[in-house]
């Protein structure tokens, strides 16, 4: 039996690596996030990036987040709605019983255990150590199994030759793409374009971005205050994108 205990303990310690734990008093620990990564080194799991979307502040008529994403990442289409990419979209909900209406943006939910990553034959779908789910388009063969597997319809297949790509957001015909959580901004210490637009352009501040592992981050504080739900929580995917108010 003692071996079992040991294993559990070791796993716990491994999970806590990157977190500095200080015992303040017996039973009381102060845990702070360690450095996100060594200078010039790869991202680590010390951080887990996430979004919290307060749908009570979101409005059906507003799509500033969508416009900002499209401009930032250059996924403007060809006026063919069925085949054009959509990294983020506004979804309007009406309760079938009460008729109550809600509106919210849906994008890649950056699952902790993403079905798209499970099914990808080549490993092109992958989750970065800091929780951002991406497509490595260099090894994507365009089989689209990830799109079959995603419960959120978050991914798009590039159906035709692309033009006007942004330097930080390469995209090409025959590969699959989705929300990157603006990984290029995050790596530079910034926030995703949708979050910025929601606060600055729309003035709503319905979207909060931050480190879910850091109890002092804005997102953790808000998530501790509001009851957060996840889309299709029944699948147990522990998404990085949380919602409140639906």
């Amino acid at each position: 039996m003692s071996t079992c205990t040991d294993t559990t303990r070791r796993r716990f310690l491994a999970g806590a690596a990157g977190l500095a734990a200080t015992t303040l008093a017996p039973g009381v620990m102060l845990i702070t996030a360690g450095p996100a990564r060594a200078a010039g080194g790869p991202v680590t799991n010390a951080r887990r990036w996430g979004l919290l979307i307060d749908t009570t502040k979101c409005d059906a008529g507003c799509d500033d987040c969508v416009v900002a994403c499209r401009t930032e990442n250059g996924w403007q289409g060809h006026d063919r709605p069925a085949t054009d990419s959509q990294w983020i979209r506004k979804v309007d909900l009406t309760d079938q019983v009460t008729g109550a209406k809600t509106s919210l943006p849906v994008m890649c939910q950056h699952c902790e255990t993403p079905p798209c990553v499970d099914v990808c034959p080549t490993g092109a779908s992958f989750k970065r150590a800091d929780g951002i789910v991406l497509v490595d388009k260099h090894i994507c063969i365009g089989c689209r199994y990830c799109m079959m597997a995603c419960p959120y319809k978050a991914r798009s297949f590039v159906h035709e030759t692309t033009h006007g790509q942004k330097p930080h957001a390469p995209r090409g015909k025959g590969t699959v793409e989705a929300c990157t959580l603006c990984v290029h901004r995050v790596d530079a210490g910034g926030t995703p374009a949708c979050v910025e637009a929601c606060a600055e352009k729309a003035g709503r501040e319905a979207m909060v971005f931050g480190d879910l592992n850091d109890p002092n981050s804005d997102i953790s504080k808000v998530a501790g205050r509001l009851v957060a739900t996840r889309i299709r929580a029944d699948l147990g995917l522990n998404q990085g994108v949380l919602y409140h108010g639906f």
Partner: peptide, 17 residues
């Protein structure tokens, strides 16, 4: 490209940019 895409290492010595 692997370091950048998977590790988030940007602005390194070699880069297409």
């Amino acid at each position: 490209r692997d370091d950048t895409v998977h590790g988030g290492i940007r602005g390194a010595k070699y880069s297409l940019q």
